[in-house]
Design a protein around this nucleic acid. Structure first.
Lengths: 231, 231
DNA sequence: ACCTGAATTGACCGAATGGTCAACTTTACC
DNA sequence: GGTAAAGTTGACCATTCGGTCAATTCAGGT
């Protein structure tokens, strides 16, 4: 008992040596995080039971508390991982090239995130709805700066008449709202559409129209000089 | 102890008689519901403490359980009230008159709902994110029928070239997503914009642009024969 | 074979919480 | 003013849950 409760990724040294496998407990740790993400996203922090997480991860409760010193500590790790996923996908909006193509790509990437990580999306949503007690600093720090930076590009586009005059921040809010809704409100969309295969019918079939509507709503124009096509 | 645990609005008979005031405990009941809406919307079902609700309603815990036989029963009452608020605001989309004006009005009404009842919006969101365990039937029943009905009108508009070709259901999903985001993700929007006065800066100042963007995105045209103006 | 530390597990504990209850107060009606 | 029901309150109970711990097993190094 020495590596106990280390919230960092644990020692990744001596990787590749014959004897030391790629992190004995590292695999466990990841299984726990994955299970916790699912449970937290459905039940919220208080509703989630440590034992439920343990069962989903296929191990006794005690083992979960062996790797994470407390439920709260586990939650922090999970939510920060989710946040970094969010910011990462946000990361690169191709500000050069034509505006339409750039945003279209961005929206699609965001939509793919909702599709491939719906639990992460829901967990993030729950955090924010609860007042973002844990990630507030990140929102008013990193995220805010990121929006300001990209916002300047939007302003330029708007001056060139390539984008509708709308507060850049709110343009992002619109995009985020629409893309996240497909993960967060899946239950509602499922109920209303009666889709048999959500993934197929919603993301594959209908998403295209929605992206078009967003691009149209933001009044994005194809830059004259550009040659990239949206396929 | 006879009217105990009656989940209905309780006897509203003999209203107006001198002696019987307008529902002695009826006022209490409403205070509890209002308090519960706030607490549930921030903490989720499991995170909400009965005692916290009681404190916010200004009475001891025992009193809350006197009016509602259990926490779960209280939750059901609260969430159903929220749902009816939702459906009520959904109720009338003026399908006659010009499409642009109709939707503009609808979006504005929905936005007002987020503004005036942010807790209700958040609670609704939490329910859905959790898989809508309680209101699922309503979603796949009432709401679904409502969307189908209004959807037919959208189809007609689309055939007349007054609206962009987009699955009507998804048009609604877009509208709901954008309008709800201002209530549900208030913490994020607050953090990113740094707004001093959320209500003013967001709803009064910025909302207009967003409504415009939505209308534009859905490709809504002003019907020729109509004379109504959007002010 | 032996040793050492990591990992696993189930029993156990204390705190917190939903819910009950019995005593008490207020209100409405004769 | 008497009475019965409605409403109020705090003490109390049973359960659940997060977290601890000691006992045990497992893996790698010598």
């Amino acid at each position: 008992m020495e590596a106990r409760h280390a919230n960092e990724p644990a020692r990744l040294d001596r990787i590749g040596t014959t004897t030391s496998n790629p992190g004995v407990g590292e695999r466990q740790r990841e299984r726990i995080i994955r299970a916790a993400t699912v449970v937290f996203s459905r039940k919220g922090y208080d509703g989630a039971r440590v034992e439920a997480i343990a069962r989903k991860a296929g191990m006794p409760k005690g083992n979960v508390l062996y790797y994470f010193k407390s439920k709260k500590a586990l939650y922090r790790v999970v939510i920060k991982q989710v946040l970094s996923l969010w910011l990462e996908a946000l990361g690169n909006v191709a500000v050069d090239g034509n505006p339409e193509e750039a945003i279209r790509q961005y929206v699609n990437r965001k939509l793919a995130l909702s599709r491939n990580h719906p639990e992460a999306s829901r967990l993030f949503a729950m955090e924010v709805i609860s007042g973002a007690p844990i990630i507030n600093d990140h929102l008013s720090g990193e995220l805010r700066r990121w929006v300001e930076e990209k916002g300047r590009v939007f302003k330029k586009w708007q001056e060139e008449g390539l984008m509708a005059k709308i507060d850049p921040a709110h343009a992002f809010f619109m995009i985020w709202a629409v893309t996240q809704t497909y993960a967060d409100f899946e239950a509602q969309i499922q109920a209303v559409t009666g889709a048999k295969d959500y993934d197929q019918e919603i993301y594959s079939d209908a998403a295209g129209e929605v992206v078009d509507a967003l691009v149209r709503g933001l009044g994005l124009k194809r830059d004259q000089g550009s040659s990239l096509q949206s396929a």
